[in-house]
Design a binder for these strands. Sequence first.
DNA 1: CGCCACTTGACAACCGGTTGCCACTAATGG
DNA 2: CCATTAGTGGCAACCGGTTGTCAAGTGGCG
Lengths: 164, 164
Amino acid sequence: MHRRDSIPAKPEPGAAAITQLTLTVFRLNGMLLHWGDQVVEPLGLTSARWQMLGALALASTPLTAPQVGEAMGVTRQGAQKQLNLLLEQGLVAARPNPAHMRSPLYALTPQGRTLYQQADALGAAMADELASLIPVANARTAMRTLETMLRQLQIATLSSEVES
Amino acid sequence: MHRRDSIPAKPEPGAAAITQLTLTVFRLNGMLLHWGDQVVEPLGLTSARWQMLGALALASTPLTAPQVGEAMGVTRQGAQKQLNLLLEQGLVAARPNPAHMRSPLYALTPQGRTLYQQADALGAAMADELASLIPVANARTAMRTLETMLRQLQIATLSSEVES
DNA sequence: CGCCACTTGACAACCGGTTGCCACTAATGG
DNA sequence: CCATTAGTGGCAACCGGTTGTCAAGTGGCG
C-alpha cells in the first residue's frame, strides 16, 4: 500500500528472498512427511496418524473429532477419517460424550499410548540432532518469520473468502 | 526420555524450538497452497498448475516430463499428470523430442505464457507485501535454517531408504 | 547384431486432505 | 413447547501426490 514510488513499480528487494523461502517451505514439508512416514513405518503408523496420536496424547482431556481437527489445523472430516482408521487399529478408543450423543470423545488406548511414546522417541532423536546443528536463536527467528507469513496469508485469504 | 549421552550429556534444549518450527512449516505449507488456489482460481488455475507453469516459464529450453518433476521436487508421474491436464487446457504444448520418441518436450503456449504472467503478478504483489514486513536478513536466516533441516532429513531418509 | 538395463508414459490403486450434501443432535429464542 | 439455527458424523466425489506394473523406446556392451 505504501509504495513510495508509484511509476516504476519498484519491487521490494526482499521479494526474491521470500519466494525462495516459499519454495523451501514446500520442499521441507514434503521431506518432513516423507521422513516421518519412513520413521514410523515399522510401527505400523504413518505421518498423519502419528500427528493425530500426538494431538490426543498432548490433550489433557479426551477430544471430539472437530476439536482434534482444530488442534491440528485440518478440517473436522479430515480428522474424522484418521480417527476412524485409528479406531479400527485399536490405538484410539471412543467413549460416550455426555454433552453430545453423536459426537464421542476420543482417547488413546494403552497400545496407542505405548506406540506414540515409541514414535515420539524417534522424533525426539531427530529433533535433538537438528537442534545440535541449528542455533536456538535461528530456529526462533525462522519460526517468527514463518508465522508472520502465515498471519499475512491468513488475512489475505480471509478477505477474499468472505464473499458469502 | 533416555538421552543416550555417550559423551557430553546434552539435553538439547533447542529441540522444542525445532518441533514448533516443524509444526509451523506444516501450517504454512497448507496456508500457501490454500492462498495460491484462491488467488489463481479466477484464472482457471490451481496452485499445482501455477507452479508447473512456473517451472516451464523459468526453464530456458523446453523440458521433458521427468525434468519438470525433478525441477519441482515431485515424481515424474506427478509432473506428468499435471502436464497432461495443462496440455488439455491448451496452456502447454508438446513438441517432438529428437532424442526420445516417446518423451516429448513441453513448452508454454502463448496463452500459457500470458496466464502465467498474470498469476506471477499476483504472486509478486504478495511477495512484496511480505517482504515489506520481513527483514531480508530474517528471510535469509529462515531459509538457511530450513535448508539445514532439509539436508539433514534427506541424509536420514536416504540412509534408511538404501536398505534395499 | 542381439541382449540387457535404464528410461519413459500410461494406467490403476492408494493416501491424505478438501468440499458438498444429507440426516440427526443440541441449543437458542419466540 | 416448538421452530429455527448451529454443530456433528457419514458418505461420496474430487485434487494432488505417491507407488507399482506394464509396454515401449533408448543406449551400452559382449
